[in-house]
Simulated scan of single mutants.
Amino acid sequence: MKTGRILRSVLIALLLALVLRPDWFVPIFAPFAPDGGPVIYQRASMLSLSLSHLGIVTLASAAATIVAVALAILVTRPAGAAFRPLSRTITNMGQTFPPVAVLALAVPALGFGAGPTLVALFLYGLLPIFENAVTALTSLPRATTQAARGIGLSRLQRLLRVELPLALPVTLTGIRLSIVIGLGTATIGSTVAARTLGEVIIAGLLTNNTAYVLQGGLIVGLFAVLIYDALVQLELYLTGRMGG
């Protein structure tokens, strides 16, 4: 446990340094830069790109969570059970359709910028949240749900007070997977002028500057690891509170 805290603190410190003071890493990245070329990406600040990147992922993940959980609630009610196969097919399509293709199709309608990226991340993030929410809502302890019904709770009250709280840890696992997928996938948004950390990676690929690629990739990777870890800790906390 103590080792985990130390490692977490080291990774947080490294991420903050990369974002706020990238010039500190010139000696490390210099061997990977072209001769006489720039070592640290300076066309935009790492802080502004990081905040924009996280903002896009947060908006897309929030929208995917709302839609996927609402859909899961619908198809786990008796009145909506018939729509479960169709809902699963729709959410699966979001994963099987390449994000690059979504971007290409969305640009004519939404223009360049964050819009197409939000659509791509939203579609890509639906499946893990939907599947986990359905699994959680269909595997609730029968004794608990019967007890809630026995004390006179209405369907809405049972959903809000019993079912959703009990389903939250498993649903949160799907949200965690969706967010981590989104953090990596959002980098391609820079191909359609969205402000993400992919801008650094793409600039490195276009100029044959591996230092840029490493800089952008390392920041994205650290964000993914730390956010993943934070959500795992939240899941463990919620599971512990619910006696699971």
Rank of each mutant, 00 (worst) to 15 (best):
G125T: 11
I12P: 05
Y228N: 15
R158Y: 03
L7D: 00
R88T: 12
S61H: 06
P22D: 10
V39R: 09
S87D: 09
P22M: 03
A194D: 02
I6P: 03
L59A: 04
G221F: 01
V220N: 07
L118G: 07
L206Q: 10
Q157N: 02
V57K: 09
R88S: 01
L234I: 14
A82D: 08
E163G: 05
I151L: 14
L127I: 03
T144C: 05
T65D: 00
A120M: 11
G4W: 02
G189M: 00
I201F: 11
A194L: 10
P141A: 07
Q157D: 07
N209K: 10
Y41I: 12
P99F: 09
L177H: 13
F130Q: 13
S154K: 01
V67A: 12
A148N: 05
Q95M: 15
F223C: 09
M93W: 12
P85L: 08
T135S: 15
A13Y: 04
N209D: 11
T144M: 13
A186D: 01
I56T: 12
A193S: 15
T117A: 14
T207H: 11
L121Q: 06
I175P: 13
L54V: 10
G216N: 08
Q215V: 12
T171S: 07
P128F: 12
R8Q: 04
A224Y: 13
G204Q: 07
S9E: 04
I175V: 15
R161S: 14
G150T: 00
L14Q: 06
P108S: 02
A68K: 05
G4Y: 08
T91S: 15
T239F: 09
P108Y: 06
I175N: 10
L159Y: 03
T173A: 02
L54E: 08
T185R: 07
A62D: 04
P99R: 09
A224T: 02
T185E: 13
L226I: 05
L238N: 14
A62P: 02
T185G: 08
Q146R: 08
R84E: 15
T239G: 12
G221Y: 07
P108R: 01
L121H: 10
